[in-house]
Design a binder for these strands. Structure first.
Lengths: 237, 237
DNA sequence: AAATTTAATTGTTTTTATGACAAATAAAAT
DNA sequence: ATTTTATTTGTCATAAAAACAATTAAATTT
């Protein structure tokens, strides 16, 4: 069998990228969904996605798609799974490489692109999505928990300056549990990743809580390291 | 723009699956490589791979390919990354979904399929591979370490009956370090996953080491759980 | 048959991390 | 000045981990 003959028989697929965009509004973990503007399933909610172009890697495509939706560049993006069930897209055979993204919700600019109608939903209560997008969200949530249990990625969801109580409420919502505030604060500070600021945030209490910033240098160095950031992971994950 | 018009412009890709097959010979962690029997790069070493068929998911394809190489079914398989750089395959645009597999090296039957010449190589010293397969192996190794640090997957590499020293040498080679044997044994036994056998393996010592079997039921139940299997993960990972 | 050797197994102690809880503190509101 | 509320710091009991030591089993040598 010649090389040409072999290659002739090979099925070709359209390749899509779908993005689960996580945000945190100060209280709840959210995902960004779009209302589909084209068939099939026009008018239904879905993840933000698109097709991979000729000259692109999926990473490049994901960044491009994310920028078209949020206007943001340099977002934290992580490829986490490729979905390829033969019947996942009823119109045509498509495989989808799924990414999750973490953004500071405050930086998100609405309607920079009017092609899609986008909206934030609580991760715990979002509408029925098209195709296998519900599965994609659930797996993304699991992967986020798994990764965040030992890596310091959740800071990507916070603004530059944040308080310890805010950080704790983020962790509590991501892991769907609650922590002792004293122990949480001590564990976080022991990582040496936080730099205490002079100012306080007094919007939530009378005493006010000190702002902290991330030590970017230290953060980059320790991103990959295993830290035990959450108590009793087995009870949660 | 009509739906038909849009879909016309979409690039289609051939989709491949590549498998990193891990094995353990009692001393060293190994990977199974094949010598390519067809162009391009005929005669060079590569990972075992193949194209995804029309009616298959990538999981199905990976299992099919793995069976054709090893004769084994029901192998532990985990999709870990999709490689999609536009220039990764010089012949045609292909994206590859990569899997790593864990098998009991003793069950592997050589040359059930003479289409490929296969050979085991130490993970620390394997030949130059085609395309981006070197990257694939390195990432697979990382992912294996990452997962094995908190999940009990390494047992998939061992025969049904194994000794604690053998288990320890596997862990030591995977994590490229050494552990205190007393502490290691206590930690492993504390998982309640091991059932002590009556017989001993006396091939490696005068005293002999007791065989253990996996408690399959307990094992299945704990597969998803997060355990702390290796000491001082921060120093290693 | 006793002594020696080797590696497996079990035991002890020190050290560190964890979790539960309590106290002190800061600043606004009364 | 006092009360209130939430943040921040502190204490202590417990448990796990790591380092290290001792014992044991069985083959080999003397």
């Amino acid at each position: 069998m010649t090389k040409e003959k072999r290659y002739q028989h090979i099925t070709k697929f359209t390749v899509a990228v779908d993005c689960i965009v996580f945000g945190f509004d100060g209280t709840r973990l959210k995902i960004l969904l779009v209302k589909r503007g084209l068939e099939p399933e026009k008018g239904k909610w879905s993840l933000m996605g698109g097709f991979v172009n000729d000259s692109e890697s999926t990473d490049t495509a994901a960044n491009r798609i994310l920028k078209s939706l949020t206007g943001l560049e340099g977002i934290y993006l992580e490829q986490y799974h490729t979905f390829s069930s033969p019947d996942r897209d009823p119109v045509q055979r498509t495989i989808s490489v799924a990414y999750f993204a973490l953004i500071d919700i405050n930086k998100y600019q609405e309607s920079i692109n009017t092609d899609f109608e986008a909206q934030w939903f609580n991760i715990k209560e979002f509408p029925q999505l098209i195709f296998d997008h519900n599965d994609m969200v659930h797996l993304a949530q699991k992967k986020l928990q798994y990764k965040a249990a030992s890596h310091t990625i959740l800071f990507e969801l916070l603004p530059e300056k944040f308080t310890l109580p805010l950080l704790q409420s983020l962790f509590e919502d991501v892991f769907n549990t609650s922590f002792d505030k004293g122990n949480f604060s001590r564990k976080m500070l022991s990582t040496k990743l936080l730099i205490k600021q002079k100012e306080k945030d007094k919007s939530n209490s009378k005493k006010g809580a000190f702002y902290y910033k991330l030590d970017k240098k230290h953060y980059q160095e320790n991103l990959h390291k295993i830290l035990k950031l959450i108590p009793n992971p087995n009870q949660i994950l």
